[in-house]
């Protein structure tokens, strides 16, 4: 597990049924690109978040495949239609096999 990796998400707490809401997500991750060399001239191996998934009540909102060109502390902003109350699940997959998750509930009137 890479150290210091922390997800952060912004989801409105409430919405009306059928509303479009904006979601912002960030995860603190170095995103080592595999292009850098260390002091001895050896290439530092690639180690990035390679996939980000956002789901709501089990349905997909967005599924992102990341390459090393995504900046350190990967940030995504996207939107979602909210048909009912429920829970957003956000998952990040690391090259090293770690999986980071966080969830946010939304109450829909």
């Amino acid at each position: 597990m890479a150290s210091g990796v922390k997800p952060r998400v912004k989801v409105p707490k409430t919405a009306a049924a059928g509303d479009t809401i904006t979601i912002k997500t960030l995860i603190s991750h170095k995103m080592e690109s595999g292009q850098r060399k260390d002091a001895d001239g050896n290439t530092i191996p690639r180690s990035i978040i390679n996939r980000f998934v956002a789901e709501f009540n089990g349905q997909s909102v967005i599924d992102v495949a990341l390459e090393p060109a995504i900046s350190t502390n990967p940030y995504f902003q996207f939107d979602a239609v909210v048909p009912e109350s429920g829970e957003f699940k956000f998952t990040w997959y690391d090259d090293d096999g770690s999986v980071y998750e966080t969830a946010k509930k939304i109450s829909v009137s």
């Binding site: 349905q59 599924d63 992102v64 990341l66 390459e67 090393p68 060109a69 996207f78 939107d79 979602a80």
Partner: peptide, 30 residues
Amino acid sequence: YADGNPTPNVATFKFGPLSASRSASTRIRL
């Protein structure tokens, strides 16, 4: 894609059934 980067692929966004506007923002390295 970034056509001047060492590798051109940057990211692929697959929009699911609950995606509203088929839009996304991010921050990339050039």
